[in-house]
């Protein structure tokens, strides 16, 4: 068996997951992990799949594209060897939530992302909430993994100073506080 990562991107509509999963099943592929989201009218999904050794990447890509096309779906397929081990599982990290809040404009995400990159902080999830707090306002929520060897106080200060010229309100909070306040979990 080989472990492949298969990405799908294209116009959203009912039946995409049904077609893809049928195509995988027909080729004796076992789905190990999957994530799927919709942004506007766009569909995106990543499947991590165990694929029999006698099936090549090109063959599988062709079969999946053909079945999607025949069902009327406009979806691109990209297949590559799956990477091993999540980035954050290779080093001790702490999960933080960083938000920026203010007038929407160009350069906002890149400014914050550059600070994260400098501190070896990995963005695990990024979401924009447009219209929160008024017209042309944008709230960006970065869920990040911060390596434990990073100086949290310094990171926090740099995030704030990067956001100041853009007139953004920024917050940086350990993720556990959101879990504690809003979710009921077992011990």
């Amino acid at each position: 068996m080989q472990k492949l990562s298969i990405s799908f991107l294209g116009k959203d509509g009912p039946g995409i997951v049904a077609t893809v999963s049928q195509g995988l099943s027909d080729n004796k592929c076992n789905i190990l992990q999957v994530t799927q989201t919709i942004l506007g009218a766009e569909f995106a999904a990543i499947f991590i799949v165990d694929v029999p050794d006698d099936i090549t990447k090109d063959f599988l890509q062709q079969r999946l594209e053909d079945s999607l096309r025949s069902e009327g779906h406009d979806i691109s397929v990209l297949i590559r060897q799956a990477s091993e081990g999540a980035w954050s599982s290779k080093r001790p990290c702490q999960p933080y939530v960083v938000t920026t809040d203010g007038q929407d404009g160009p350069g906002l995400i890149s400014t914050m992302a550059r600070v994260f990159a400098r501190h070896n902080v990995n963005i695990e999830n990024l979401k924009a909430v447009l219209g929160h707090g008024g017209e042309n306002h944008a709230l960006f929520v970065f869920e990040v993994e911060v390596p434990e060897d990073q100086d949290i106080g310094r990171l926090n200060r740099e995030i704030h100073s990067a956001a100041r010229p853009l007139n953004l309100s920024v917050s940086m909070q350990h993720r556990d506080i959101f879990e504690a306040m809003h979710r009921i979990t077992d011990f």
């Binding site: 939530v97 938000t99 809040d101 999830n125 979401k127 909430v129 929160h132 709230l139 929520v141 869920e143 309100s169 917050s171 909070q173 993720r175 506080i177 959101f178 306040m181 809003h182 979710r183």
Partner: peptide, 16 residues
């Protein structure tokens, strides 16, 4: 993954 509501609710509580 946190929901929008969880993040915004906490932010509002702290800020406002």
């Amino acid at each position: 993954m946190l929901s929008e509501r969880e993040v915004i609710s906490t932010l509002d509580m702290v800020r406002n």
